[in-house]
């Protein structure tokens, strides 16, 4: 589903690479934690998958496509197969919950009747069907993140990328979000989640890829956040 072949990313005007010769593969349907300190390359990894950045060396393959060979007008097509969730939710403050989710479909030109059908479905999935007409400011942080997940998932992506999705949430709320991501993963969606949250990683017991200074220093199936003997 996602394959990195000797990928190095050096940002302009920086001597140290953000990712340094990374080779790894994420299979379809996997749930992968990307852990490591700030600046270890987690976000760069996600940006390369989204083709927000291009690698300085090496190749990134997503859903069978070599992103280096993907012409720029095909990038939107790639991103329609990827859902993305961020630490800061990135909701539109002047649109309701329902409108925020519908927005993701409107801007890719989906017909209205289809939007009217799938938006309530996905809001039901994230447990917010009764709050469709609320504004994001009226919701709790956890609820806002559920809206963001609904928006990322409404187009049924094959990969869900989550960049510190629980970073702004308290532990109890985080557990709820993780349950939701787990449920999405069980539908066959590959989930890649970058996180600092040791407790969550330890409790989920999924594959853990640890980055340090841009290098993969650990790749464990059913791993934990830190080294434990």
């Amino acid at each position: 589903m996602i394959r990195f072949d000797n990928v190095t990313k050096i940002y302009p005007q920086q001597s140290r690479p953000a990712l340094d010769d990374v080779t790894l593969e994420v299979e379809k349907g996997e749930f992968v934690f990307l852990v490591g300190a700030s600046g270890s390359g987690k976000s760069t990894f996600l940006r390369l998958v989204l083709r927000e950045e291009r690698p300085s060396h090496g190749h990134v393959h997503v859903a069978g496509k070599d992103l280096a060979r993907l012409s720029s007008w095909k990038v939107p097509g790639l991103r329609r197969q990827l859902g993305t969730v961020f630490q800061d939710f990135r909701l539109l403050p002047n649109k309701t919950v329902g409108q925020n989710v519908a927005f993701a479909l409107e801007v890719i030109g989906r017909p209205r009747h289809q939007i009217a059908k799938v938006v309530p479905e996905v809001l039901d999935l994230v447990g917010l069907s009764d709050k469709a007409s609320r504004l994001p400011s009226e919701l709790s942080g956890g609820e806002q993140q559920r809206v963001a997940i609904a928006r990322a998932f409404v187009n049924r992506p094959i990969v869900l990328l989550a960049d510190e999705p629980t970073g702004n949430l308290d532990p109890t709320t985080s557990v709820g979000i993780m349950r939701l991501l787990d449920r999405i993963n069980r539908t066959g969606t590959t989930v890649v989640m970058a996180t600092h949250d040791a407790q969550i990683v330890d409790s989920m017991r999924r594959r853990v890829i640890e980055l340090e200074g841009g290098k993969v220093v650990r790749d464990q199936s059913r791993g934990v956040y830190g080294y434990s003997s």
Partner: peptide, 17 residues
């Protein structure tokens, strides 16, 4: 920016944005 950022992310074509 916020709107267009989201549009980019969910795969809106550049024409649409």
């Amino acid at each position: 920016r916020r709107e267009t950022g989201i549009m980019r992310l969910v795969g809106a074509s550049s024409l649409y944005i």
